[in-house]
């Protein structure tokens, strides 16, 4: 229990530091939301109007400490105020609109990459002398070393622009109505292929290697040799004897990967104009939309910290020695 408390207080401190950075970072960028807004109006606004607009958006020049206190208050009450970009719509509403798409993209690609990766990892370690074991893991390692953005752009160019096989933008065809119809679900799936595909391509190698390394250790164990000696089918040895034991370290890595997957979806969304958090984060940064930037960074920070905390809990459950 004291272990849990120690971890919790550690994460709480980390959270406080992270949200303080959230407050500072946008303010360290040159320009403020009203300057950006004014620029977007292309001279149609009178400079004398600027102060009034600044007040309307709630950016009265109080001292930074006061701003910080009210920011902290807003974080803990989850009342983040109106977005500048989509004024007067609340930041919570804006985030609520796009968060599901990001979760779909981040978690969906993580799950697919995990299943594929673990399967490939298991098989390639078991048959590591063969062509598959020799060729596939290095090839995947090569692909995964491309940054998200490069993979995404390559897919965008070939499948979207050149072959015109798959749509280049949106989460679904804007012409059809959302709902539980075959047409809508099909459209969502079609629009998810490229963004999700690029994230899977980048993410898969981690799981292949995690699984492969764990498997190679386990395969050297006596009980595996024993199982083989008993004449069990290789499928049974691979999955029942080796695989089940090897997956434990992978399980803890999943928790960590959730946070990274969220971060990775940001770039992908921008390339494919996918209407998730990453897309509006970029727009928010360009418009210096402090409330929106803060809200999204808050979600990312929470996702990473929560995932880490869950990983800690998993470790304790898997290896009771840690909590001592």
């Amino acid at each position: 229990m004291s272990f849990l408390l120690r971890r919790l207080s550690f994460y709480f401190t980390a959270f406080l530091i992270a949200i303080s950075f959230n407050f500072m970072l946008p303010r360290m960028m040159p320009g403020d939301p009203i300057d950006a807004l004014f620029a977007a109006a292309q001279g149609k606004m009178d400079p004398a109007q600027m102060d009034a607009v600044r007040e309307m958006y709630g950016f009265v020049d109080g001292n930074v400490f006061e701003q910080y206190l009210s920011y902290m208050q807003s974080v803990f009450t989850l009342d983040l105020g109106p977005s500048v970009l989509m004024f007067p719509i609340d930041v919570t509403t804006v985030v609520g609109m796009s968060l599901p798409w990001t979760m779909f993209l981040a978690l969906g690609s993580l799950i697919v990459a995990l299943i594929l990766g673990v399967t490939i990892g298991t098989y390639s370690s078991y048959r590591r002398e063969g062509f598959f074991g020799q060729f596939v893991p290095p090839f995947l390692a090569f692909i995964s070393n491309f940054p998200y953005i490069v993979t995404a752009l390559l897919l965008f160019y070939f499948f979207g622009l050149q072959l015109e096989l798959l749509p280049l933008a949106y989460t679904y065809d804007p012409a059809i109505d959302p709902g539980f119809t075959l047409e809508f679900i099909g459209s969502v799936a079609k629009h998810a292929v490229l963004p999700m595909g690029s994230m899977i391509l980048v993410g898969i190698a981690t799981w292949v290697f995690n699984m492969r390394n764990a498997m190679i250790n386990v395969l050297g164990e006596d009980y595996v040799t024993m199982a083989e000696a008993k004449g069990l089918s290789s499928f049974r040895v691979m999955y029942r004897y080796a695989g089940r034991n090897a997956i434990l370290p992978v399980a803890t890595a999943i928790a960590m990967a959730i946070g990274f997957s969220f971060a990775g979806s940001i770039m992908t969304e921008v390339v494919f104009n996918y209407q998730g958090l990453g897309n509006i984060l970029l727009k928010g940064i360009m418009a210096r939309d402090y409330p929106l930037i803060q809200a999204i960074l808050l979600i990312l920070v929470s996702a990473v910290l929560t995932a880490n905390f869950v990983a800690d809990l998993l470790y304790v459950w898997l290896d009771p020695r840690i909590s001592k």
Binding site: P47, Q49, D51, A52, V53, E55, M56
Partner: peptide, 9 residues
């Protein structure tokens, strides 16, 4: 009453 709407001040 709403200077923010006063486009040309």
């Amino acid at each position: 009453a709403t200077p923010a709407f006063d486009q040309k001040a």
